Computed example of a mutant assay.
Amino acid sequence: MSKRAAVVAVSCGALLAGCGSGASAETDEVVSHLVEAGLPADDIRVADGAVYLGGDAHVSLDASREMLKPGEGHHELHRTINLVGPNVTRICVNPTAVFNAYNRLSQGLDLALANYNALGLRLHFVRGPTTGCTATITVTTTAGAGSSAGYPSNGLPYGHIYVGTGLSSYSLDRAEHAITHAIGHTIGLRHTDHFDPSISCGTTIPGPEGSGGIGFIPIPGMPPPSPGGSIMNTCIPPDTDGEFTPSDIAGLNYLY
């Protein structure tokens, strides 16, 4: 049985005293740091002296200590529990005919795909329809001037992206930003400022996001969120250039 399959739940109690008779001092410290950083105790697991989040994300002692540094903690770029599996390397992104009829949106899609492909990740995005892909995402239109998508499951990216036709009235950079952001969700990125969307939205609406059962797993080494600091912020800044920030690039390279 693999270590991952053997993961068992932490049952430390409210004070985290004595996480099992065989737990090491280091394991106890990692667990206490995670809870202090605001991560739910029922999402923390231990197996063979190692600590995991969401069942499959190992957290080292150094990483857990970084979560408690002033100004950082759990307020960093986060991913979902599920990611795109290692067998997925070539992803077909297929826009509908209706989507293609909006020239600004179609150009934005090309630029968004180029944003990811320029990083040399193991995930390569191809505008379809074409053949030889290990996963497919359909891009279609919806109302409004934003975008939306879901999160990975069963090792595959989410299969649909919805892009508001209202974006065709805005700049090409804004369309590029919105679609790049949506692709980020399909491969497991959550909103950088999920705990306080006012960081990018400038208002208390929308409020903080819940886990939704899909997890807020911190990506190591990410700085705290700031306006314009990540393409995965909740709201799009009016002066966006549609490009990844250095933190986005570092996070994506860490994951893929």
Rank of each mutant, 00 (worst) to 15 (best):
L15K: 11
L15P: 05
L15R: 12
L16K: 06
L16G: 07
L16A: 01
L16W: 05
L16T: 02
A17T: 15
A17S: 14
A17K: 13
A17I: 08
G18L: 02
C19D: 10
C19K: 03
C19R: 03
G20E: 07
G20P: 01
S21T: 15
G22K: 15
G22F: 12
G22W: 08
G22D: 12
A23Q: 05
S24G: 13
S24F: 10
A25G: 02
A25C: 04
A25K: 04
A25H: 09
E26F: 09
E26L: 14
E26N: 14
E26P: 07
T27F: 03
T27N: 02
D28R: 08
D28N: 10
D28S: 15
D28M: 11
D28C: 11
E29Q: 12
E29Y: 07
V30A: 02
V30N: 01
V31G: 03
V31Q: 07
V31P: 09
V31C: 05
S32C: 09
S32F: 02
S32T: 09
S32D: 15
S32G: 11
H33Q: 07
H33G: 03
L34R: 04
V35S: 00
V35T: 08
V35H: 07
V35M: 06
V35A: 13
E36D: 11
E36A: 14
E36R: 11
E36L: 10
E36V: 08
A37S: 15
A37P: 09
G38P: 10
G38Q: 11
G38T: 14
G38L: 05
L39A: 02
L39V: 03
A41Y: 00
A41Q: 01
D42Q: 09
D42P: 10
D43T: 14
D43N: 10
D43Y: 06
I44Q: 04
I44S: 03
I44P: 01
I44T: 00
I44G: 07
R45D: 14
V46M: 15
V46L: 12
V46C: 12
A47R: 08
A47L: 09
D48R: 05
D48S: 05
D48P: 04
D48A: 12
D48I: 00
G49F: 05
G49N: 04
G49L: 06
G49S: 02
G49C: 03
A50Y: 10
A50P: 06
A50D: 13
A50I: 00
V51F: 05
V51M: 03
V51Q: 05
V51P: 00
V51S: 06
Y52D: 02
Y52T: 01
Y52R: 01
L53H: 03
L53Y: 08
L53Q: 00
L53R: 00
G54N: 01
G54A: 02
G55F: 01
G55P: 01
G55Q: 02
G55L: 11
G55A: 10
D56T: 13
D56L: 14
A57F: 13
H58S: 13
H58I: 10
H58F: 11
H58C: 06
H58Q: 11
V59T: 09
V59N: 01
V59H: 00
V59D: 04
